[in-house]
Design a protein around this nucleic acid. Sequence first.
DNA 1: TAATCGTAGATTGTTTACAATCTGAACTCT
DNA 2: AGAGTTCAGATTGTAAACAATCTACGATTA
Lengths: 248, 248
Amino acid sequence: MMQALSHDTTADVIAQRIRSAILNGQFKPGDRLIEEELSSTFEVSRGPVREAIRILASEGFVVLRKNRGAIVTTPTMDDVLEVYAIRMSLGSIAVAHAAQARVEGSKYFAQASKLLERLSDSKVQTEANKMVDADLAFQNSIVQLGQLPRISDSFAQTDNDIRLFVRVLDIKYDTQDYQELVVRHTHLLNALTSGDASQATHLWQTHIRATVAEFTSGIAPHELDTVFERPLMRHVFDFQPLTGGHNG
Amino acid sequence: MMQALSHDTTADVIAQRIRSAILNGQFKPGDRLIEEELSSTFEVSRGPVREAIRILASEGFVVLRKNRGAIVTTPTMDDVLEVYAIRMSLGSIAVAHAAQARVEGSKYFAQASKLLERLSDSKVQTEANKMVDADLAFQNSIVQLGQLPRISDSFAQTDNDIRLFVRVLDIKYDTQDYQELVVRHTHLLNALTSGDASQATHLWQTHIRATVAEFTSGIAPHELDTVFERPLMRHVFDFQPLTGGHNG
DNA sequence: TAATCGTAGATTGTTTACAATCTGAACTCT
DNA sequence: AGAGTTCAGATTGTAAACAATCTACGATTA
């Protein structure tokens, strides 16, 4: 049968390497990606490099300007709020849909359970990057349970924004917060298996709100104020505007 | 100053031509796009053609398989429901956000008004394709008023699915329905200028529901049943399941 | 006959070379 | 000095040839 292996194409490999370089901070926001340069460092021709850059552009890691090449994206606080608004609403749909399907039989269910356990792995809880990755992986598996491929794709698209943001702002994960995250996710998966759609969406939305709160708690107070004043926050996240002070 | 014109790159031009060919039905769902072939018909080298195909893939017009080229996407009823679910939820956020901003000053407001008038243009009301395009253009302008670029992008992304679907299923627009569409859009823009967010989101959701109803009214009854039974419909569109018969 | 294997042609993936465009610094002119 | 111009180097865009992979079809075998 020999199920076509389809080795990754060179462009994919190069894209992956540049991606890592961006997430490792070897390329910083605003840096230019020069085809010839990458071409010689990776020892491949410009063709695949060019293609890799387009892939990264479609993933939001870089922006393209005609005849002027690519520069690494600079994420802003506005971007992140938008990204979480998207995750909140698309995720809600997916989760509700998943709850009504027979989820336990799904091939994705085992994966979700495994990823849930992985969250508690002691090796994961050492670095913020790993915690973020584990969380994102679990969230994606949950969304995939919804069996809505376009929504899953659009959702997964926003992962990169979060990774970029965590790197650029050097967000730290509070250990206490992280424990609560694991508990919430456990509840969520339970709600899905018991088919309780409204409970599942409630838990989902709670999680996103908590995540946004954690993100913003690491932000400079004056910037945080402007964040909480945005209409987006009240509409999507149902946050109360903070009258007066702020914690930190 | 000579503000860099940035002529469209060849790849962009080719992408546009293939796009039109797909929307005109010259390429049908399932057709293969062969680089060499396109390269000779458009009289350019394979490089730009290849790039154009990747662009179309990112827009959802074709799907790519490694070492096996691109085939034109075959849209399904499931896809369309998903697309409208996305438009419903992302659009709601954008519209609510727009209502709270000072929208009248925005440079997009004039555009939205113009596109609203264009809906009533007699030249538009001759072909289903033109009505769809005008509707999509107006909806996009509304969503852009929300000033949420990522949401606008994700939203606009789904336009192509709708165009493809209209073509493939040869959807007809009922004139009566279209008149009501124009009225709804007028109300919507009014709600935005008066800053009534909840009214605006209500109108938005009503419009999407109506659109889905029109789409599904052109569908074979047995397929329609399965559509209305989907949990997605109840969750996102708040449709009541039809117990018993169905209208034509 | 049905299944496997292998080869030739078709098609995509990659490289290299060349053309078009942009960027920035030196040079004019006022 | 300041604004505009020119030109060389840097960089991206395009073309054409070469390499790797896949597909289809027929030969071989059981």
